[in-house]
Design a protein around this nucleic acid. Structure first.
Length: 490
RNA sequence: GCCCCCAUCGUCUAGCCUGGUAAGGACACCGCCCUUUCAAGGCGGCGGCAGCAGUUCAAAUCUGCUUGGGGGCGCCA
């Protein structure tokens, strides 16, 4: 059997979309599974919208996800001569013709036709223009495009997921293959490249189904062998419309920056529209996915992106991950959020952050949550949740409790969780009260929150100095007639 | 409007091709257990074959129609 060659061919007009990432993933997985090649091609024929930055972002995103390519990236903008040659070939064969209609004229005719309740297709106005007529139009300064002549009949192709798909050729109109700026259009460049690059499987979103008959006709006109086509379902938002900004950010970089692990996003994306069939198994390594992957068990219907499930999956990966690895991601987040400058980071910081991670990795869904919801680890001035402050530190005897805690904790030299716990419990027993009587106010005093990790572990990670300072500050704050922070709001 | 694709719990899906075991799992949700709070973990629960015909002894599985959803109809890709 011939070598399996798949490709991912994004156009660099923005970030890598989750849908694109999943398309890349399936192409990559099939190539790996079949010991073939995965090729990257940048479709930058839209001069106005393509940017170099976008190329960088897309490449970074692919690499971050571990979707490494074996060939490329090829840039269509560097292959213009090739497209011109094939365009000329079609023209010589009489399968493509010059069209001088301007976009404005076409729009006018389109409106007119539609107004009569008819479907617009290019009216072949420029089909069979005589050489003198063309020359005259050129003299007028008109630019021309090249249109592909659609023969009568029916076009059928086989989709690996759906079987035969038929289109009446009348539904297709003579589409443009070379633009007036000399650039090829998508359908044309795509076919020429896929053929020349010997792509064996074209795996793309099913929003391309209607392009496929046009491309098939092009393959036939150019005398190229047909690849296998597989149109994979789209990824939709909660409201079942195309996943877009309205659903939160659909970009791979957004999830990277929020502290999602690449292996988790990879796993989640792979499980959209695909399942191995094994029950109770949701967590798959890249290798496990490659081993099990096949186009045949990709579903045909669109999949809704479910952040809850991604969050769950990411939390599973976080719990299993190495602390140093997680720490390096946290570090980037802290820098990006302005908690610290890169040049200020010391090994002591890292040591501390690793402890924070060790303590918190079981209770977070993504790393940025630490900075957002457990800021008390990264700031000196603890912010108090108003309800926590009022309910837990509002009691009559709280000042006394905090005072006792401060005195007791000050005497402990070996500031470790088991020792701290023993001390607090002992103190509670001596007073004849439950340990919770001390635990809750202490937690709020040092973290500002009612919820969080185990108190004694928290105290150990924060360290004696911070703990004492925070208790003192809390004591002072409850003495004040009016709570000074969080003016306004809830 | 025209063309194309799709249809199993709220969501991701297994089962469908090769009709026949109480339609299974995961996320979410709800309870209980554990527990200093929150998580995690354990146990349990809720919840689905879009509808209507047809074929058949038997239909989630095969066929048709209806409905619903998605996509396309650019000198964008």
């Amino acid at each position: 059997m011939a070598e399996v060659r798949t490709r991912f061919a994004p156009s660099p007009t923005g970030f890598l979309h989750l849908g694109g990432a999943r398309t890349a993933l399936f192409n990559w997985a099939l190539a790996r599974k079949e010991k073939g090649k995965f090729i990257l091609r940048i479709e930058d024929t839209d001069v106005a919208r393509s940017t170099e930055e976008a190329v960088e972002v897309i490449l970074d995103s692919l690499k971050w996800l571990g979707l490494y390519w074996d060939e490329g990236p090829y840039f269509q903008s560097k292959r213009l001569e090739i497209y011109r040659q094939y365009a000329l070939l079609l023209q010589e064969k009489g399968l493509a013709y010059e069209c001088f209609c301007t976009p404005e004229e076409l729009e006018e005719r389109r409106q007119k036709t539609m107004a009569q309740g008819e479907n617009w297709r290019y009216d072949r106005k420029c089909w069979n223009l005589k050489e003198e007529e063309k020359e005259k139009l050129r003299q007028e300064g008109r630019k021309s495009v090249l249109r592909f002549y659609i023969p009568p009949g029916e076009t059928t192709f086989i989709d690996m997921l759906r079987g035969e798909v038929h289109f009446q050729n009348e539904e297709l109109d003579d589409f443009v293959i070379m633009k007036s700026d000399g650039m090829p259009t998508y359908n044309f460049a795509c076919v020429v490249d896929d053929a020349l690059m010997k792509i064996s499987h074209v795996i793309r979103g099913d929003d391309h189904i209607s392009n496929t008959p046009r491309q098939v006709l092009l393959y036939q006109a150019l005398g190229f062998p047909l690849p296998q086509f597989a149109h994979i379902p789209m990824i939709l938002g909660k409201d079942k419309t195309r996943l877009s900004k309205r659903h939160g950010s659909p970009s791979v970089t957004y999830y990277r920056d929020q502290g999602y692990l690449p292996e988790a996003l990879f796993n989640y994306l792979a499980r959209l529209s695909w399942a191995s069939g094994e029950e109770e198994k949701e967590i798959f390594s890249r290798e496990e996915i490659v081993e099990r992957f096949s186009i045949e068990n990709v579903t045909k219907h669109a999949a809704v992106f479910d952040l809850d499930k991604l969050n769950w999956m990411n939390s599973v990966y976080i719990r299993q991950a190495d602390n140093k690895y997680l720490c390096s991601i946290l570090e980037e987040i802290l820098v990006r959020k302005g908690r610290i400058k890169p040049e200020e980071i010391t090994s002591a910081h890292r040591e501390y952050w690793e402890k924070v991670i060790d303590l918190m990795k079981e209770r977070i869904k993504y790393l940025a949550q630490l900075e957002e919801e457990a800021s008390y680890f990264f700031t000196e001035e603890v912010e108090f949740d108003p309800p926590a402050f009022e309910q837990v530190l509002g009691g009559e005897e709280v000042e006394e409790i905090l005072k006792d805690c401060e005195e007791m904790l000050s005497q402990i030299e070996d500031f470790r969780a088991p020792i701290l716990e023993e001390a607090v419990r002992e103190m509670a027993e001596k007073r004849g009260v439950k340990a919770a009587k001390f635990i809750h106010p202490l937690r709020v005093a040092v973290s500002g929150k009612k919820v969080g990790p185990g108190l004694f572990e928290l105290l150990e990670v924060l360290g004696k100095e911070k703990v004492i300072k925070r208790i003192q500050r809390a004591k002072n704050l409850i003495k004040e007639p009016r709570f000074p922070q969080n003016s306004g709001g809830e």
